[in-house]
Amino acid sequence: MGATISTTQFYFYGRRHFTQTGYVKHKAKYNSSVQDSPSIKVGQEGADGVDLSNKVVCITGANSGIGKTLATYAAAKGAKLYMFCRSKDRAEAARKEIEDETSSTNIEIVLMDLAEMESIKEAIKGFQKKEKKVDILVCNGGVLLNDKKTSSEGNEMTFASHLLGGTYLLSQLLLPQLKAADEGKIVIVSSGGMYNSPFPDWATATSSEGASHDYNGNLAYSYAKRGQVLLAEQYTKMYPEITTVTCHPGWTATPAVDDAYGDNKKYLEPMRTMWEGAEGIAWLMGAKKDEIESGGFYLDRKPQRKHLSGPFFTEGSYTKNSQVEVDEMMANLKKAAGL
């Protein structure tokens, strides 16, 4: 019953807030400037006033979709940008497009596979020889699959790329650099899909032997995204000197959505443009520490509720995890990441 209510209410709540119509409504209430595109440079007409000069910004999944849009924004604002990507060819093509659009000459590519723990560890070893600080880490990359696939290390790909490797391990390895920054910040791109579920038992979350049901790509994604929200809450307690937030882009027309939903994406219309989905996340990148609620789950520059499973869109209890369950998740993440 809880699953049915949370899924139904997520959809109707999303119709009001996650679509392009919701973005227009939310933007009308902003109390600071908003750009019309991500490539507007510092000081140009229409700029939002953000300057990321002398900031080191790392973005995963930076060669397409929301990640590329955020990378374009960071480059236009003068950041030293590191694009964390899996495909060398796609990363190089995206870097060239971003350079042409922003005139930035300060963009580097770091190759890693977010679903492979050893790939992340090796890539970060090389990165740490270059950089002593990271001002902003954006955990955006990951896959959304309809059929179960596993990495060479045996981890289910959605869980590994979004949560285990792409958020937990990556951020753990970069803690020294984040702490070295004046205002270190982790921005985790989660999803409204996390409203559909609590974080389940470990076997189910990882789609391993002993899972409570057969593999379901949408549920695997929901579990990973709920895990990211819980992780940000824990990081806020564990590392108060680092601002950690989760956020989501609403229902945005990205290549990943096309691949996952096909014709069914019509139920998400009118969908946001790439920049409309990314703009609130870009704001989090540029906002000052005292402007952000660490541990919050953001949409369009505003922290949102994290549960919708009760009657009439109230919080309910179905999607909530106990502290014991969260502690178990954290312990299992550490073990699975090999830390």
Rank of each mutant, 00 (worst) to 15 (best):
Y215H: 10
E108S: 11
S208L: 06
K121C: 06
G250C: 08
Q228H: 05
R90V: 04
N155L: 14
Q128R: 05
A94K: 06
H307V: 01
E131C: 03
G166M: 11
K320D: 00
F312Y: 08
N54H: 15
E92K: 15
K88V: 12
G141S: 11
I66Y: 07
N106V: 07
A76I: 04
C139I: 04
K129G: 01
Q128W: 02
G154R: 12
V189A: 09
L114S: 08
K335R: 06
T246E: 01
Q44S: 13
M285K: 05
G2P: 05
E118D: 14
K133I: 01
L268P: 00
A160G: 04
L114K: 09
K88G: 08
C58G: 14
F18H: 01
I124V: 14
I66K: 06
V56H: 14
W251E: 00
P249Y: 09
K266Q: 13
G2F: 03
G192V: 04
W275M: 13
H248I: 10
T314S: 11
V57S: 14
M157L: 14
Y261G: 06
R272E: 07
A62E: 04
I107P: 02
E99K: 06
A336E: 15
P255W: 05
Y82W: 13
G295I: 01
T8M: 05
T69N: 12
P255H: 09
T244C: 07
L219P: 02
Y73F: 15
Y23P: 08
Y30S: 14
